[in-house]
Simulated scan of single mutants.
Amino acid sequence: MNIFILTGAGLSAESGLGTFRDKGGIWSKFDPMKLATPSAFARSPDDVHAFYNMRRQNLLAAEPNEAHRALARLEEGLAGHGRLFLVTQNIDDLHERAGAQHVIHMHGELLKARCTACTSVTPWHEDLSVNHACPHCGETGTLRPDVVWFGEVPLHMDAIDDVLAQADLFVSIGTSGSVYPAAGFVEQAKELGIRTCEINLEPSDNARLFDETY
Rank of each mutant, 00 (worst) to 15 (best):
M157Y: 01
E63A: 11
H102I: 11
I194F: 08
E96Y: 00
I3M: 02
A40R: 02
G177M: 07
E75T: 12
G18N: 05
K29Y: 13
M33I: 05
N206A: 05
H49Y: 15
M106K: 05
D31G: 00
W149C: 10
S39D: 15
G77L: 04
N131M: 07
H107F: 06
G174N: 05
K34M: 15
G80N: 10
R144G: 13
T116C: 12
R83N: 13
E187W: 01
H49L: 01
I91N: 01
N131G: 14
I26C: 06
G184N: 07
L110S: 06
Y180W: 13
E14S: 03
A42P: 10
W27N: 00
G184M: 05
L164P: 14
A13Y: 10
E66W: 14
E109T: 10
T116E: 13
V121P: 04
E202P: 09
R56P: 10
G77N: 15
K29H: 13
L86E: 00
R21F: 01
L11E: 01
V148F: 05
A98E: 05
R83V: 06
T88K: 00
N206E: 01
R195Y: 04
D46Q: 09
M157Q: 13
R144L: 08
Y52C: 11
M33Q: 15
L74H: 01
T88Y: 00
A61D: 08
T7S: 08
S204W: 01
D168H: 15
A79S: 15
G138K: 00
S176G: 09
A36L: 12
L155H: 12
F20E: 05
T213Y: 01
I5G: 03
K112A: 01
G82M: 04
I199C: 07
F170W: 07
I104A: 12
I199V: 14
N65P: 06
Q166Y: 02
C137Q: 02
H102P: 11
T196L: 10
G174W: 00
S15H: 01
W149L: 14
Y52E: 10
F150H: 12
G16C: 04
G24L: 10
E66S: 15
H136Y: 03
L84A: 03
A40Y: 05
R114Q: 06
Y180S: 15
H102E: 15
T142V: 09
A61K: 14
D146G: 02
N200D: 08
L209H: 11
G80E: 07
I199F: 09
A113I: 01
A117I: 00
I3L: 06
S44Y: 05
I91F: 00
P123N: 07
E187K: 13
L35C: 10
M54T: 11
K190D: 03
D205R: 15
A13L: 11
G138T: 05
F41R: 04
D93Y: 04
E212D: 06
R21S: 06
L94E: 10
N65G: 11
